[in-house]
Amino acid sequence: GIQEIVAMSPELDTYSITKRVKEVLTDNNLGQRLFGESILGLTQGSVSDLLSRPKPWHKLSLKGREPFVRMQLWLNDPHNVEKLRDMKK
């Protein structure tokens, strides 16, 4: 599951990941809330907090790293936007 992926993950640049996620969401007119609930399993508040103030990787616990790994996996998925759009319906 995701825990193994997080444990094996190389250090991620949390700042550039969140910046990229925000760009993709904005460009495709997708909400942070939808993204947070569907992709990260987080509430709106947690998501906007994460996206606006990402902590550096080395300061995060494994649990804290999980959303960033999920974001990275989502960014790597060529169908990420379509999938999210489908969830919106």
Score class of each variant (00 low, 15 high):
residue 70 R to D: 05
residue 12 L to E: 05
residue 46 S to F: 07
residue 83 K to L: 07
residue 14 T to K: 02
residue 51 L to W: 03
residue 52 S to V: 06
residue 55 K to V: 14
residue 50 L to S: 04
residue 66 E to N: 05
residue 56 P to G: 03
residue 23 E to R: 13
residue 86 D to F: 07
residue 75 L to C: 02
residue 52 S to D: 15
residue 41 G to V: 01
residue 68 F to I: 06
residue 57 W to F: 04
residue 83 K to E: 09
residue 55 K to P: 14
residue 36 G to S: 12
residue 16 S to V: 12
residue 78 P to C: 10
residue 76 N to L: 09
residue 15 Y to K: 13
residue 83 K to S: 09
residue 84 L to E: 01
residue 83 K to D: 08
residue 84 L to A: 03
residue 60 L to T: 00
residue 30 L to H: 02
residue 83 K to C: 07
residue 69 V to H: 05
residue 9 S to L: 06
residue 2 I to S: 10
residue 80 N to G: 13
residue 38 S to R: 14
residue 78 P to V: 10
residue 26 T to N: 14
residue 85 R to Q: 12
residue 23 E to K: 15
residue 69 V to T: 07
residue 59 K to A: 14
residue 20 R to L: 04
residue 70 R to S: 05
residue 81 V to C: 10
residue 23 E to W: 04
residue 64 G to N: 06
residue 86 D to N: 13
residue 65 R to F: 01
residue 62 L to N: 14
residue 41 G to T: 04
residue 45 G to L: 09
residue 24 V to S: 03
residue 86 D to Y: 06
residue 79 H to E: 13
residue 73 L to G: 08
residue 34 L to I: 09
residue 71 M to L: 01
residue 1 G to Y: 15
residue 18 T to Y: 04
residue 13 D to R: 00
residue 72 Q to K: 12
residue 84 L to K: 02
residue 16 S to D: 15
residue 46 S to Y: 08
residue 19 K to P: 00
residue 47 V to G: 04
residue 51 L to G: 01
residue 56 P to W: 05
residue 79 H to R: 13
residue 62 L to D: 15
residue 16 S to L: 12
residue 7 A to W: 05
residue 78 P to T: 10
residue 25 L to R: 01
residue 8 M to K: 13
residue 21 V to A: 02
residue 7 A to Y: 07
residue 79 H to S: 12
residue 57 W to N: 01
residue 35 F to T: 01
residue 83 K to Y: 06
residue 80 N to C: 10
residue 47 V to I: 11
residue 66 E to M: 07
residue 73 L to M: 15
residue 21 V to E: 03
residue 22 K to P: 01
residue 65 R to P: 02
residue 67 P to E: 05
residue 13 D to C: 06
residue 55 K to N: 05
residue 62 L to G: 08
residue 14 T to H: 02
residue 34 L to V: 07
residue 47 V to L: 14
residue 7 A to P: 06
residue 15 Y to N: 14
residue 35 F to R: 01
residue 74 W to L: 00
residue 66 E to G: 02
residue 14 T to W: 02
residue 23 E to I: 06
residue 8 M to L: 11
residue 67 P to R: 05
residue 61 S to D: 09
residue 53 R to A: 07
residue 66 E to V: 07
residue 83 K to G: 06
residue 11 E to R: 06
residue 59 K to W: 07
residue 10 P to Q: 12
residue 76 N to A: 11
residue 6 V to S: 11
residue 54 P to S: 03
residue 68 F to M: 03
residue 22 K to C: 09
residue 48 S to Q: 08
residue 37 E to Y: 06
residue 54 P to C: 04
residue 78 P to Q: 07
residue 60 L to G: 00
residue 3 Q to K: 11
residue 62 L to I: 15
residue 67 P to G: 03
residue 46 S to I: 12
residue 20 R to H: 07
residue 31 G to Y: 03
residue 6 V to Q: 09
residue 14 T to L: 00
residue 50 L to D: 04
residue 82 E to P: 10
residue 35 F to L: 04
residue 28 N to Y: 10
residue 49 D to Q: 14
residue 77 D to W: 01
residue 68 F to R: 00
residue 11 E to T: 06
residue 3 Q to E: 10
residue 30 L to W: 02
residue 40 L to M: 06
residue 56 P to E: 15
residue 36 G to V: 07
residue 63 K to M: 10
residue 82 E to R: 11
residue 78 P to R: 06
residue 72 Q to L: 08
residue 30 L to K: 01
residue 69 V to W: 07
residue 1 G to I: 14
residue 49 D to C: 08
residue 38 S to Q: 13
residue 21 V to Q: 01
residue 4 E to F: 05
residue 51 L to P: 00
residue 76 N to W: 04
residue 4 E to H: 10
residue 89 K to V: 10
residue 75 L to S: 01
residue 88 K to S: 09
residue 49 D to G: 06
residue 66 E to Y: 05
residue 82 E to I: 11
residue 29 N to T: 05
residue 10 P to A: 09
residue 19 K to R: 12
residue 25 L to D: 03
residue 53 R to K: 13
residue 51 L to K: 00
residue 52 S to H: 09
residue 35 F to D: 00
residue 67 P to D: 10
residue 31 G to I: 03
residue 59 K to R: 10
residue 22 K to N: 14
residue 40 L to D: 00
residue 7 A to G: 11
residue 36 G to N: 08
residue 11 E to F: 05
residue 66 E to T: 05
residue 58 H to R: 08
residue 25 L to I: 04
residue 29 N to E: 10
residue 56 P to K: 14
